[in-house]
């Protein structure tokens, strides 16, 4: 029986908690991508860099706060800096919309043109970020590192395996729940949120109903910038901040949005967790679990991994391809928010 608990603890510690954390980060990212797709009708390749930009501003403000010895122990100071990060990112996003996307929107450009334009924006933002903060790793986490330490867990339960919960993991999961709940409340219960859904559903009819498209577009960018900043900061807190990493995050984020049904917020969230857990389940080393649950005499030489962790990124790519072949509209049949 103890073996079963040990096995469960290993699963919890190395699969479930990291999966929920990573899934929450992807879900928040995919929610932003899906909003842009639903309202503005294009795939925003600059979303990864928007996350990085928001995180960067948050980091700069965090350093300022740290220098001024302002903190909110035991929580990381970055949480205090996020609002500033959001505001600056909103301003940048709105400026980019004003000077780049609006031109093409007025011309009713093809979505492919928007997509390519967004790649341009991606490179611009990437350059801006590296110009300001440099390409290197930045660690900006402070506060209490662990809520539950593996050693304490072992002492508490008497098990051989430890379960730890890092502060960043708890913060990520809780923040994601709050943000997602707030987002759904906004979309389903406020006039502005409903007008966004209406615009996404039927642009012409929304116009006939007196819904101002400029306002819908502006609110969408504000939400997207806020979501991106939060997602980017949470990811940076949990792992570390490295500009190039956010570009690589684009693939799992798009995979999440598409798996769930692009344009569908509920789908984006489900997709985030599907992608996160798929990556972890396929690259997890099952050796310990099998040793605990298998017969006493069993000996294993390998780690019993389905895929090496190097192939992590391939998992989201494979899922993406499978979904696009079998059910291109995704699990929740997307298209409108």
């Amino acid at each position: 029986m103890v073996d079963v608990f040990n096995a469960l603890t290993v699963l919890g510690n190395f699969l479930i908690i990291p999966g929920l954390t990573y899934g929450s980060q992807l879900a928040l990212g995919a929610l932003g991508v899906t909003l842009v797709y639903g309202v503005l009708r294009f795939s925003n390749f600059a979303h990864g860099e928007t996350m990085a930009f928001g995180a960067m501003i948050t980091i700069l403000v965090t350093w300022g706060l740290q220098a001024a010895s302002i903190s909110i122990q035991p929580l990381p100071t970055a949480l205090l800096a996020i609002p500033v990060g959001i505001v600056v990112t909103v301003v940048l996003t709105l400026l980019i919309d004003r000077f780049v996307y609006r031109y093409h929107r007025d011309r009713k450009a093809n979505p492919v043109i928007f997509l390519i334009v967004s790649i341009g924006v991606m490179f611009f933002m990437g350059g801006l970020i590296r110009f300001i903060i440099g390409p290197g790793d930045q660690i900006f986490f402070d506060g209490t590192r662990f809520i539950l330490k593996a050693r304490e867990f072992k002492q508490m339960t008497g098990l051989d395996e430890g379960l730890s919960l890092r502060m960043t993991q708890a913060v990520t999961i809780i923040t994601a729940i709050i943000i997602v709940a707030a987002m759904f409340w906004f979309l389903n219960h406020t006039r502005t949120g409903k007008s966004m859904r209406a615009y996404s559903d039927n642009e012409n009819l929304a116009l006939l109903s007196g819904i101002n498209p400029d306002r819908v577009v502006m609110i969408t960018w504000i939400l997207v910038a806020a979501l991106a900043t939060i997602a980017g900061t949470l990811y940076g807190l949990d792992k570390s901040f490295k500009p190039f990493v956010y570009m690589q995050l684009l693939l799992p984020i798009f995979a999440s949005a598409i798996v769930g049904g692009v344009g569908n917020p509920l789908g984006a969230i489900a997709g985030g967790y599907v992608i996160a857990f798929s990556e972890l389940i396929l690259t997890f080393a099952y050796k310990k679990i099998i040793l605990y649950l298998g017969p006493e005499t069993l000996e294993l030489d390998s780690l019993v991994q389905i895929l090496g962790t190097d192939y992590k990124i391939a998992v989201s790519f494979i899922i993406l391809v499978i979904v696009l072949i079998i059910k291109p509209t995704g699990l929740f049949s997307g298209k409108t928010i």
Binding site: R191, K194, S195, R197, A198, D201, N202, N204, L205, A206, L208, S209, G210, I211, T336
Partner: peptide, 25 residues
């Protein structure tokens, strides 16, 4: 008031939300 021939409702929204959107102004 104008009712187009096709695509004249918000298909993903409930009947009541459709009416609410009609009164948006």
């Amino acid at each position: 008031g104008f009712v187009p021939q096709t695509h004249n409702v918000f298909t993903s929204m409930t009947v009541e939300e459709n009416l609410e959107m009609g009164a948006f102004i």
